[in-house]
Design a protein around this nucleic acid. Structure first.
Lengths: 349, 349
DNA sequence: CGAGTTCATTGGAGCGTTCCAAAACCATTG
DNA sequence: CAATGGTTTTGGAACGCTCCAATGAACTCG
């Protein structure tokens, strides 16, 4: 039976429960039940009511529902100015995935502008009071992030994209296992015969960056490969990466794994500068699968985050938390995937 | 006088108008007036009520306001998967600016996932019915976009980031004058002494791409410079751009203006391939100011869109439209700015 | 000094929904 | 056939706010 009609027929000023009720010859309450507790109605009545709903194109008015039930079916998300190191394409895809999954579960994402600094808790409070959002999704968690503790204290459901990098673990989160990504990159390179595999990371101290370094290190150790002199760091900037990777190349590295595609691009430049070809002479692996990575030549092999899955899991955990506040926290660590392109292919030329 | 308190004092279960009214010794209606029509109150009363509001940390409940006033103070925005050609960083910054300006005007952005295809009008209808959004912001307008006509027909206020590229002009829009950007790029290059200035664009037919080409062409004509044989096209992909720019270089171009930073990156590769240095040997100008542009070496000169201003104007036009539905449509074309980096500096080495 | 006028404040209703408790219906049964 | 118990339906109130019309207070003027 068709539940959503395409010809909203008369669709006059406003179709309310009462409209439907009258037309179907039942009470407004019954119409409400037809939608919220269909098992209460006699099948025959249910059918008639649903048909009428369809005919007149009735849609429940969310504001009224919110007022009555104290639940807005809204999820708050504080959008921050793109932080250095956090790539816009990643956030963009995440937000789309999040919005999509939320939609499918009958929820919507309500944006608010959040200052870049960790602070800006006011925004969260305001959304809570004014719009009675049912929960929040955080992203870009940092060391010393105060948001989780603040939300927990108020008993507000939330889920973070990004684990807690410091202090006591609070609440649910979904994250991508960066260490596993760089580990896999090492594995792949070792399989190709590389032994002198270097890592170009961000300055120590950022949770995300250290995690990615960690995977490289453990995989190297596992294979009995030395890491000393094979690691360098740079801010997320091409020129600076280009400079930082120099010593690694001088030390004879045959492959470089980086903490971001930007850093990888810096390696490309350094290689070109030395008349070397990425992929053919030196293998390079980036991180994040920036759209640019596919477009480079040779294409940049990189570690891709499963952002659709992250979005999906965020919604799933949040819904679970909202339905059972006391449940033990759930933490999901998703596997990134290694996208292989020409920057890691042993040239056959 | 402090209007927003930081210590919400008792902030019990829920603070309503009635709570405040009782505590201030006035009627609920008076409290409402204090916020919505303060000029109706005696200054003395107003003061007392506002103070009480502050003390108890009262915040009006939006759902109740929405229900009563039929205005949600919500602006809908259909977020699409990043389209090819449209850069994620651009959309990201735009969305942030939009959200911020909306916040300041007391509005919020409500996201919904919209399919990439032009269709997906259902999403708009649903947001309208369910959440009674007050208006929409569109972005990524294309040739033959149906959204504007659809919204106009229903009398729903909207504003588009992106002009109408085909058909009758409908509604308000804000856009960036791409032609003016490439025109300015030509001007700058001519000032540096360049005469053989080429353009690498996208395949004809996309509104945005053709617009950017147009500016180059008209500036060239204005300076009496030939355009024949100085134009090539490529999809937004580095390798393909690299190939497409070849003939232009062969034909002796000393500078290349491109429709996007990706295409410019393709030029960089082509130049490296020929042992030429961007900036020193051949000038390159990109478009969009992708974060990557600043990080390249040499830094890529590029045309930057004033996204904060776009966001601000979108909100301004939308608010105007909402307050006066019948006003003549307003269309704002903003000037992009040329960001100069080393890819256009006559080398002094 | 009472009637008219303006200004400030209030009471009641209603927005569309769901909660709660009570009512109607229907078939069994003692 | 009245009483019982279960299923299905209903009426009224309430969520928090703002609209509207009406009241009360203060002030002006013949």
């Amino acid at each position: 039976m068709p539940r959503s009609s395409n010809n909203p027929a008369t669709k006059a000023a406003s179709v309310t429960l009462a409209t439907v009720a009258q037309r179907a010859g039942v009470s407004p309450q019954t119409v409400s039940n037809a939608l919220n507790s269909p098992e209460l109605l006699r099948p025959e009545t249910l059918d008639r009511v649903l048909r009428t709903i369809d005919e007149v194109g009735y849609r429940p008015h969310r504001a009224a529902q919110t007022l009555r039930t104290r639940s807005s079916k809204l999820i708050g998300y504080g959008i921050r100015p793109t932080a250095p190191g956090a790539s816009a394409p990643v956030m963009d895809r995440f937000l789309h995935a999040l919005s999509q999954t939320a939609d499918e579960a009958g929820y919507r994402i309500l944006l608010f502008a959040s200052p870049s600094g960790g602070a800006g808790l006011d925004g969260y409070e305001e959304l809570l009071d004014l719009h009675s959002v049912d929960g929040f999704v955080l992203s870009g968690t940092e060391r010393g992030d105060q948001r989780q503790a603040w939300l927990e204290k108020r008993g507000v459901p939330f889920v973070a994209f990004g684990r807690m990098w410091s202090g006591r673990q609070i609440g649910d989160w979904v994250d991508v296992d960066g260490a596993s990504g760089t580990d896999a990159a090492v594995e792949h390179l070792v399989g190709l015969g590389h032994r002198r595999i270097a890592f170009l990371g961000w300055p120590r101290g950022s949770g995300v960056g250290d995690d990615r370094a960690e995977g490289w290190q453990r995989a190297m150790r596992r294979h009995g490969l030395p890491v000393r002199g094979r690691r360098a760091q740079s801010v997320d900037d091409i020129a600076s990466a280009q400079a930082a990777v120099g010593p690694l190349l001088d030390a004879g590295a045959t492959a470089v794994i980086t903490a971001s595609d930007m850093l990888a691009l810096g390696c490309y430049h350094a290689l070109r500068e030395r008349r070397a070809v990425p992929g053919t002479d030196i293998a390079v692996v980036g991180f994040d699968d920036n759209p640019m990575a596919a477009l480079l030549s040779p294409g940049l092999s990189t570690v891709a985050q499963p952002l659709e899955a992250v979005g999906r899991e965020c919604v799933r955990l949040l819904l679970a938390r909202m339905s059972e506040a006391g449940a033990p926290p759930e933490r999901v660590l998703l596997e990134p995937s290694l996208v292989l392109r020409d920057s890691t292919s042993a040239s056959d030329a």
